[in-house]
Design a binder for these strands. Structure first.
Lengths: 246, 246
DNA sequence: CAGTGGTCTAGACCACAAT
DNA sequence: TTGTGGTCTAGACCACTGT
């Protein structure tokens, strides 16, 4: 398909050509959010490829967050996505507000249990010591965006599991336990969602996610919080705002 | 394959079963970094699937950064990856040092040109005003990790293109121009690498990347730097260290 | 019932590097 | 030439939803 001349040329596979074509049509504003793309079998005819090849092109756009596949108006189909939701890192309870969107965190479970090795090491306690652990599903407009699993040393938070755990956890720590977050260290990487995460976040099997593993410290440098957050890579962009101290 | 009972059950596709199987074998330490996996056609026989299905399983592991496909010892094959490289966000010139690894930034190009609309808006200058722009390829042990494209208003950096641009840019700004970075605001999201980026970063077509779009401000709140950084999602994890001011 | 995407097959041909 | 991964075909059957 492409011109090739003296070592400089690159022959694009069909699935790249097709995804490039569809991407430019979406970016060009030809197709609005939630507008249906042609059915896969129609794309095959349009581009003269087999369905596996057309699907590869759509899979690229899906992992870019540019399209999604779902039921709309009672029909299965592939549709143009809305823009990603921006989440501000470091103040996890506040997403950047958008008109018509409202945040929420559903508590999936909360319990006291023995610390794993990794949790104990992060929190500076003994393996097997009690931690309070909780998992929450963060949404925006009922769209699941992130899965947060958080751990605290149980001894510093008596009665914590009876608090309201659907809002800002840092607010609870500040107001009820006089624990003031002062510093956070996080490690962020791209992962493939496992079965549980992709089910809870309502993505396809083995979709990409952003995994943020973080520890939060008080002003004395003591780590009081360990958390593993998993974001939908196709729906979230993270905003990082940071002072430079060096 | 899986048990199914009254709404609770999930039937795993073959490619998920196979990738789960290989993942646990790699994670279990059975296979060390750079050890070859069985050829795809052998995996087909082992698991009784067609090659397309076996490849889907390997593609998942590849996008997880758990395996790579390359030539080693003169043979094409699929091999176990080394652990990801940790890069510290905010001090881009310093990767977390590891024995035997040494960082480097290759200057791909540097030039003065008119600002695009996005660059001008970020830097607070007029569209079309002069910016100095440069692109660098960051490596660790010759392994390409990130592609950085950086923009500055040309008028604040006379002679900048004659400086050594292969080290820390912030050091040059501090030492030669008395510009002190005080704050950085960044937006991070998962993207699919385009042809140019996947070529420079030596990934397969349409591999996942981490795109960091950032602006850096001096102590007066003036934005003097706009940058678009693209990381290899399979090879990099980002470390974020942040004071909490709220 | 029809229409859609999700999974899967059983092959094919190619490029590439070492032998 | 051999062996590997990369691309691609031309189908198939399934689950799901609404008519």
């Amino acid at each position: 398909m492409e011109k090739t001349s003296s070592g400089e040329h690159i022959l694009q596979p069909a699935y790249v050509r097709i995804s490039d074509d569809l991407r430019s049509r979406i970016r060009g504003g030809d197709l609005k959010p939630h507008a249906p793309l042609p059915p896969e079998r129609e794309l095959c005819l349009d581009h003269g490829v087999s369905r596996m090849t057309a699907r590869r092109a759509l899979n690229i756009l899906e992992s870019e967050g540019l399209v999604y596949r779902d039921y709309r108006d009672g029909k299965r189909g592939t549709f143009v996505s809305e823009p990603r939701i921006e989440l501000r890192l470091g103040s996890f309870s506040r997403e950047i507000s958008k008109a018509g969107r409202h945040p929420g965190a559903e508590l999936l479970w909360a319990e006291k249990k023995p610390a794993s090795h990794a949790q104990a090491a992060a929190l500076g306690i003994d393996t097997g010591a009690s931690v309070v652990a909780l998992q929450r599903l963060r949404r925006s407009d009922n769209e699941p965006l992130a899965l947060e699993t958080t751990f605290y040393p149980a001894h510093i938070l008596p009665g914590f599991l009876k608090e309201d755990l659907s809002g800002s956890l840092w607010d609870v720590l500040r107001n009820k336990y006089a624990i003031i977050p002062a510093r956070t260290v996080a490690n962020l990487e791209v992962v493939v969602l496992d079965q549980e995460a992709s089910h809870l976040l309502q993505t396809r099997q083995a979709a990409a996610g952003l995994r943020l593993i973080r520890r939060t410290f008080d002003k004395d440098g003591k780590c009081f919080e360990y958390a593993e957050d998993t974001y939908r890579a196709d729906r979230v962009s993270l905003v990082i705002d940071r002072e430079i101290d060096e």
